[in-house]
Design a protein around this nucleic acid. Structure first.
Lengths: 255, 255
DNA sequence: CGTATGATTGACATATTTCAAGGTCTGTGG
DNA sequence: CCACAGACCTTGAAATATGTCAATCATACG
């Protein structure tokens, strides 16, 4: 099990410059020469399998990771051992930034499907970013963006109904798939209903009921893991992102 | 209104080295010489009054701020204009980190009492942190810590009951007051019940009821804004941070 | 195929919100 | 210095969104 086939060393190089995620990921805004320096410290790792952990709570933080393909969930454990999912991560997104302050991962990262990641040793990244202004700037930006997203999510959990939460979640996935060149209207959920419920602070049953409700309302079509968004504006309206004068709660009069 | 009395220029210098917040704030871990450089770019601002805004959503982000004394709340606005408080900030804490990615404040910061802050022009801070490794490192740490705290808070909103939320909030305040040399068991709340409820994703009435419940249970004494924690372990137990074999929900049998 | 896991659906329970009323502080202006 | 207005807080009763429990169904997988 620990015996690994040899890795293609050439494949490890030139990661970023040819990577389709270029403008979503760390290298954004860096000069060509600097990029070469960054590439030198990045390791492309062997793909990990569904349910494999990238790291667990308490693990020493050696590297941060960038999702290359696949998807990952991160979660913390409550005092009584149940998990709270803190995020679902798509290609181009960075994992482990929450571990910098303590040098230790406060949460776990687990693959939702076969997933490949780039591994970036953090001490070397830190050195490099002191020498490459564009890199430092991008790191600050990415961390800032994450804080901003967290604030948005607090609003979701603090103020929004279950309907609004699920709709907003679908829209977020849709937008992120679009950014990555996938269809924004038809995609597969890689996480279970349980994961979605956990993430959104709801019960599984509630999520399930909402899906059928959205489906009946003609807003999305749900076929197990396959989602297609049939009425984007309808979904936005449900999420509370589109003002509809004279009518609120369009699902009220539907099954 | 725009006419300002002259500012004591000497007071603006030497901010950090004599500051009691040294080890909670940005300068932590920096060499003496480097600190001098940092101090040069920091402006101590005239105190702002209760309810004054430090910035509002959409404002261009020129500087980030460090709370020097007093307290500040930050909040975003929902699509329909109500506020969602994203944090209460005590001396030594940094404000505006969520604005780096867009160069624009996504939220507002408003003083809860007379408050003084240090203003740190961000472009100069960025330059400086490329030249001072200790500063860059501390900035990464602080941002990472914020992401980590946000994750903890997601757990609070997603998984915890109203009782647990309020108890955890009181404990968080207590710990932060202690860090700053104030009493961890007796303190004044600078925010209203409304603010607390908003922050914790609850109704004001719920918070009010919980306070009287905690009080009746002998865990804390509430006298308007003045809180004293009478049974710290009891509070931890309610927050779900202390395992009590054979008994859960100690408040169940109390008014 | 049959079994296990995840998803759906229904009926019921309940924590928390909402609505409504009354109480209490605090600062202001007479 | 007192009285008053307005904001803030507390309390009760009723409403409701969501959770919990339980059963069934579909799918995937060995």
């Amino acid at each position: 099990m620990n015996i690994q086939p040899p890795v293609d060393i050439n494949g490890l190089k030139q990661a970023c410059r040819n990577c389709s995620l270029y403008d979503l990921c760390l290298p954004l805004g860096m000069a060509e020469d600097d990029l070469a320096l960054l590439e030198k410290i990045i390791n492309r790792r062997r793909p990990i399998q569904r349910n494999d952990h990238l790291y667990r709570p308490g693990d020493r933080m050696i590297s941060i990771f960038a999702v290359r393909s696949g998807s990952v969930k991160t979660y913390t454990l409550t005092d009584d051992g149940q998990e709270q999912i803190t995020g679902f991560h798509l290609p181009g997104e960075l994992l482990g930034l929450d571990a910098i302050s303590d040098g230790m991962h406060p949460c776990a990262a687990r693959a939702l499907e076969t997933t490949s990641v780039c591994e970036i040793p953090f001490d070397r990244l830190e050195d490099l970013s002191a020498r490459i202004p564009g890199l430092q700037r991008q790191l600050f930006r990415i961390m800032s963006r994450e804080i901003q997203n967290d604030e948005l999510f607090m609003m979701l959990l603090g103020k929004k109904s279950s309907e609004e939460r699920l709709a907003a979640f679908m829209l977020s996935l849709s937008a992120r798939f679009k950014q990555r060149g996938f269809s924004p209207t038809e995609f597969n959920l890689t996480m279970s209903r349980n994961d979605i419920a956990n993430y959104l602070g709801l019960a599984v049953e509630t999520v399930s009921r909402l899906f059928t409700r959205f489906d009946n309302a003609g807003i999305i079509s749900v076929r197990r893991k396959l989602i297609s968004i049939d009425d984007m504006d309808g979904l936005r309206r449900v999420a509370g992102l589109l003002r509809t004068p004279g009518e609120d709660g369009i699902l009220d009069n539907l099954g």
